[in-house]
């Protein structure tokens, strides 16, 4: 079966500061690659290598200086902020290092937030199943500050998964967690990758975590220096 390309980027470049002047910083330099449906990709690199910039461009939260990003046949670099926001809530699940949960909403409300924003009726059965998978059944009505870091990150994963996004972008999801919680989170991501054939793109500086992925792209000084499939 021919695997479908979910995400591809071509000649992606991002410069900061005054372009052409002394203060110019090239964060990402002419990066091209593509991700197929169901792939679990880890992007690895040292601090300052440009890996986070890459993820931001892929998520459409930052604008590229040049090049394009195509997700599910849509060139997101051509969308305006508002179209991007709507595209994102339907197609991209974002997971951050610092969870970014709304402190005023409980576990279930945080998870269903993207559906609620979309005005889509929440499929209760599916959400409950998801919460059970996440191991948060007992915590369904808790507020984020009543949860541990690992539990909060699981809520964030649930939130990313709830809309069946085309791709999940995770930015150092374990960066703030101890090793036990970290492996739980990675297991969960792998599980969703296997069970729902969920495409996942994970940014990390931790090689051990990257080893869990199907494919490892290494970035240094804004360029891809290796792209290995297992």
């Amino acid at each position: 079966m021919e695997e479908k390309v979910i995400l591809s980027c071509e000649n992606l470049t991002k410069k900061y500061g005054d372009v052409g002047k002394e203060t110019e910083v090239v964060a990402l330099n002419d990066v091209s690659f593509s991700v197929k449906e169901g792939e679990f990709v880890a992007i690895i690199g040292a601090s300052g290598s440009g890996k986070s910039t890459l993820l931001h461009l892929l998520a459409g939260v930052d604008k590229a200086t040049s090049g394009k990003v195509v997700i599910k046949d849509t060139d997101i670099t051509k969308l305006n902020n508002n179209e991007m926001a709507i595209f994102r809530r339907k197609n991209i699940g974002l997971i951050y290092q610092f969870y970014n949960l709304l402190s005023i909403l409980n576990v279930k409300e945080n998870i269903t937030l993207p559906c609620d924003l979309d005005g889509v009726k929440v499929d209760d059965k599916k959400v409950n199943e998801l919460i059970e998978t996440l191991g948060l059944k007992e915590r369904i009505n808790h507020l984020p500050n009543q949860l541990s870091g690992g539990q909060q990150q699981r809520v964030a994963i649930g939130r990313a998964l709830v809309n069946n996004p085309a791709i999940i972008l995770a930015d150092e999801p374990t960066g703030n967690l101890d090793s036990k919680a970290s492996s739980e989170i990675i297991d969960l991501l792998k599980f969703s990758n296997k069970k729902y054939n969920q495409t996942i793109l994970l940014v990390t500086h931790d090689e051990k975590i990257a080893e869990e992925a199907d494919r490892i792209i290494e970035i240094s000084d804004g360029k891809i220096i290796s792209d290995k499939r297992k």
């Binding site: 939260v61 508002n82 709507i86 809530r89 339907k90 974002l94 709304l102 937030l113 924003l117």
Partner: peptide, 13 residues
């Protein structure tokens, strides 16, 4: 931060 997060998960302007 909250608005940023909402924007990132797809809240429109």
């Amino acid at each position: 931060k909250e608005f940023g997060m909402l924007a990132s998960i797809g809240a429109s302007k």
